[in-house]
Design a protein around this nucleic acid. Structure first.
Lengths: 139, 139
DNA sequence: TATTGTTATACTCTATAACTATA
DNA sequence: TATAGTTATAGAGTATAACAATA
């Protein structure tokens, strides 16, 4: 059977549409909470991690100076706090406040509520198949 | 068999990871071309359409005033042009320049080149299955 | 000397409000 | 009066370059 390049283009197109749909949902939920998508990502990352400024920046693919501004604004909203690092006096750890954790948890639930109507377009067995296919493709 | 809610969470998690991966690729390609993700979207939309400012804004979910700035900056780079609308003297159509079309085409190819190594993690039959599953789920 | 984080600066993206020109 | 687009303004996100404190 000849390889049809348009099959690959179809998949890439579907991945693109899926990405815009998912990011749209995330952006909307963040906006409802008065947050940008990046701020939402920061909260999500810090949910189960304590990172220093530089590690957080690297995780997000941003410059340190950008991180300073992001953390400063989120700190002003009392969503997270700067804590001096014990081992290295130059470093600053960033942690969620109780309020930040509450919002992060609420957003996680809201995302599920938002996407569930879409995932329910598929019968349960297909949901598992889709998950497995995506995971096999992801790095 | 009892419904396991964590199955749905797994799918939503995989969709999120897929979205960040795909958007990351798109953002990187746009940056390589000196464009923002939004500018890339504008070029992609205008590839096979001629839209007025207001329709373009609605398509992207942005305010008219935001559109003015986006189009002005892209026009300064000679990627697109404003054309008076024939039917309505208030309206302005936005069209790609030859240069803008060239960049839009190049970006489309670059996206395929970037994502192909990922899609090739799956055997061809599974690529088709994944495409079909995503399409059935998308609105 | 190298690294961590901040500050200063500049540009893009975005929205709201007020405006002009046309319908 | 309503609509299309622009301008003015303000705030967030982003990067680069220069800097202070610490390693």
């Amino acid at each position: 059977m000849p390889r049809d390049i348009s099959d690959d283009d179809d998949l890439i197109d579907a991945l693109g549409q899926t990405a815009f749909m998912t990011m749209g949902a995330l952006t909307g939920l963040a906006a409802d909470a008065g947050l940008s998508l990046t701020q939402l990502r920061v909260l999500a990352i810090l949910r189960d991690r304590r990172l220093r400024m530089s590690d957080l920046a690297e995780y997000l693919g941003l410059e340190k100076s950008t991180m300073t501004g992001l953390v400063a604004r989120a700190e002003r909203k009392e969503l997270l706090a700067r804590v001096p690092n014990e081992q290295d006096a130059r470093a600053v750890d960033v942690v969620l406040t109780d309020q930040g954790r509450g919002i992060a948890d609420a957003l996680s639930i809201a995302l599920r509520d938002t996407l569930t109507p879409l995932t329910e377009q598929l019968p349960p067995a297909d949901r598992g198949a889709l998950t497995a296919l995506l995971r096999r493709m992801l790095p």
